[in-house]
Design a protein around this nucleic acid. Structure first.
Lengths: 228, 228
DNA sequence: GCATATTTGTCCGTATGTATA
DNA sequence: CTATACATACGGACAAATATG
């Protein structure tokens, strides 16, 4: 019983299965990167981090592999691993992928599970409540959950995983922006509009609104990115 | 100069950058798996493979990690790695993801590069010529290239990579079927239909045909899969 | 059910190659 | 150009888990 507690604390997907040390280390580094404690461009030394975390270089390298696959770290041969520095081209690529996946998933709304549909509405509710309490951190996570829920409408684990990778990378890109409130405030309006259209079963309209949201968010990020 | 030759021979993405030994080992195992030389369910012993390939266990484990991310191998804690055995549920999930990605990318046809459009047509031409020569292996690779080219219409590297992972997994699923000719023969007709519709700029019709192809191919695989 | 053998998980030390000051 | 620092890859070691008889 206590084992599951530990695993749940350790990080993300603590199902019933055991988590490897590399997984735990990767989860720790991931959260630090997404919180901005390890800023983009920083080099992660194998020896320094290994001794600091009390794991061997081998184990740490496996953790690096995991995070490189999630595109949060970049690997340069014989030079080491660095926290990714998102470029304007990255953001364009990222949003092109999101456009295809999320718009495609949203089109499946009529055939989706009731639970999956509810998750979309609940994510927006969460963000709305956050805005009412002036808690803009909640608004941000609500926004992510909203898009995550849209991807999950398709009901494919493989698609969900790729979506989560994309969202983590978007969070990393947002990391370079300090004042995010004005962004989330504007995005919340779009999310509500989309949910309203969906409640009226006007799917095509909702997809069009989602595509418009992507155009705006993409430009927001690109213009606020340094050295774009 | 000769270095680039060697790298090109070694495997997949031999750009300008050097490839690590783990990468080379992973590429070798990958091609063996996709050719069916390492059949689904087989356990890959660390020591046996390591000595056979002349690499250390550590390096081999990194290669395993790479292939596990590509879903060609599955990792069971303290039991080792196995060549993935695709289940019916895997195929359903796989085709759901493909439906979203490829149909979404195909909708972008009007805005796509000319080069990307040409690649779609060339892939079908390749398959047609293969069929004329009774070379059904070429028809199969032409079919893969066709779908790869469709994904590439969107122009997102991240989407392309996920697409390639999905295609590799589909090839693995097809690995359990011996007589593939009748399948590819039928699929070729669909591919030609889609290209013809595209040449007339009837994109919506083409997307609908693609969706229909997915329904058929998915059922083909599910029904021919053992212990479905 | 038990004891043994095999294999994996993790760590360490070292030699070599590579990039940077 | 030399020197330093670091990543890459290897081989060995031991504990833990699993498989086998």
């Amino acid at each position: 019983m206590t084992d599951t507690w530990v695993e749940a604390l350790a990080g993300g997907k603590a199902d019933l299965e055991r988590v490897s040390t590399a997984q735990k280390v990767a989860d720790m580094i991931r959260s630090r990167v997404l919180k901005g404690e390890l800023e983009p461009g920083l080099r992660l030394s194998e020896e320094a981090l290994g001794t600091a975390l009390g794991v061997s270089r081998n184990t740490l390298r496996e953790a690096f592999r995991l995070l490189t696959h999630d595109r949060l770290l970049v690997h340069e041969h014989s030079r080491g691993v660095f926290v990714r520095v998102p470029t304007a081209a990255d953001v364009r690529d990222l949003y092109t992928a999101r456009r295809v996946i999320e718009c495609g998933a949203l089109r499946l709304w009529p055939a989706a599970d009731k639970a999956a549909k509810d998750a979309v509405r609940q994510a927006v509710d969460f963000a709305v409540k956050g805005a009412a309490k002036d808690n803009w951190n909640d608004v941000g996570t609500g926004n992510i959950r909203f898009h995550q829920a849209i991807t999950r409408l398709a009901g494919s684990d493989r698609l969900n995983e790729e979506g989560d990778r994309l969202y983590a990378e978007v969070r990393l890109a947002f990391q370079v922006i300090k004042e995010t409130r004005s962004f989330y405030e504007r995005y919340l309006v779009w999310n509500r509009t989309i949910v309203e259209l969906l409640s009226k079963d006007e799917v095509d309209q909702a997809v069009e609104s989602l595509a418009e949201y992507f155009r705006i968010a993409e430009e927001d990020l690109v213009t606020h990115l340094p050295s774009s």
